[in-house]
Amino acid sequence: MSGGKNVKVLLFGAAADLAGKREIGVSVAADSSLDELWEAVVVEYPRLSPMRQTLAFAVNGEYAEKGAKVSPGDEVAFLPPVSGG
């Protein structure tokens, strides 16, 4: 592993607002969990921290639980409570 950013994290709505970014590059090891990725992101973007209880997550376009595996090359999305309609 090169140690470069190998996972693309997309942020939406209030999460994008708080982070001040819509896309973040994160470096994860081969068998990381979504939870570990979240912890790494929060260190860099502490303003996201209060959203922990309400955020949902997606890996490669499908909802995923916090314990789900994240691999290099995946696309992760931080999804605030949805409010369409």
Binding site: A14, A77, P80, S83, G84, G85
Partner: peptide, 26 residues
Amino acid sequence: RIKEIVPIWKREVWSDGYVWVGSQIG
């Protein structure tokens, strides 16, 4: 169901600021 599972977000833009509906952040 749209309001439960479809990843779409609504921002209310008011005359005195904005609010992300659902997150109540703004």
